[in-house]
Design a protein around this nucleic acid. Sequence first.
DNA 1: ACATTTTACCCCACTTTTCCCCACTTTCCT
DNA 2: AGGAAAGTGGGGAAAAGTGGGGTAAAATGT
Lengths: 154, 154
Amino acid sequence: MSSFKGSDNYIVDAKGRVSIPSKMRRNIEPAANQTFVVARGLEKCLYAYPLDEWERLETTIRDMPQSNEKDRFFVRMLMQWSEEVKLDGQYRLLLPRALMDFAEIEHEVFFIGVLDHIELWNPNNFKKYIDSKRESYERVAEHVIGARRQDSVL
Amino acid sequence: MSSFKGSDNYIVDAKGRVSIPSKMRRNIEPAANQTFVVARGLEKCLYAYPLDEWERLETTIRDMPQSNEKDRFFVRMLMQWSEEVKLDGQYRLLLPRALMDFAEIEHEVFFIGVLDHIELWNPNNFKKYIDSKRESYERVAEHVIGARRQDSVL
DNA sequence: ACATTTTACCCCACTTTTCCCCACTTTCCT
DNA sequence: AGGAAAGTGGGGAAAAGTGGGGTAAAATGT
């Protein structure tokens, strides 16, 4: 099971390639077979799942009854934007154009490791996202943790 | 299960390395595999969790449904600032630049052992933090302990 | 169907950063 | 007092990050 963490700024070269940060690379299971599934993220970013984690997720989706319209819409959107991408010899992803456009990624990417997946942001959009949050990290933490105090997080 | 306590002042060398105080070192479980996760702390400091303690925490985070926006924000902030760091042969941590900058740590660190994690402060910031508290230790203690008397703390 | 253009993918190369190892000094403990 | 452990410093090999060219495959147009 992967456990990505940390963040980093990377260059996307003229061909649309980006290296996976080495600290995240170390958390990729061999079962992922050097392959990621890049999908449209929540908020304006991309999610990159190593293949093994993606398959876990896909199993959940498959088991979801597609009997209501909302679920079907969700699955269509998710799958429409998902692409399987294999790393090259230098552990780089070739980002599909459509997804780069969606996330407004150009010459730079801000990576965040988020447990089972890696997020790719346009660095400016990430700043805007953070700035749009009025509450401080401390207050959100108190709130989130407080709501779950019986589990004793942090 | 670790149980860090005490405090100490240490030097950060030009490469960003600090020794873990030996009295805290003794409380690290072999399961931590000489590895810490350094994260952004609450208030302007860093939290260093031995890997085994971090994994305990991470399990809780993973189980959090990421279906609401606030939770996603919290997880992104937490993970963005978290880095896995392995101790070198001399039991030193190499502090990631971004985290040093966040906590304004330069040539010196003030360590505090706080149960399951170790806190790293800029010594001046810790002084300021203490000074900013108007209530005395005694009064806060009365309040905190009082609120939990039924749990019989202390 | 074929020629032409575009896209994908492998390989090689250069620069910078990271990390591993060795070494010296000071403090602690018996 | 002596030995061991703790705290601090620095050099060099290895890995990471970035860029570019060449060939093969795919897409496009006539």
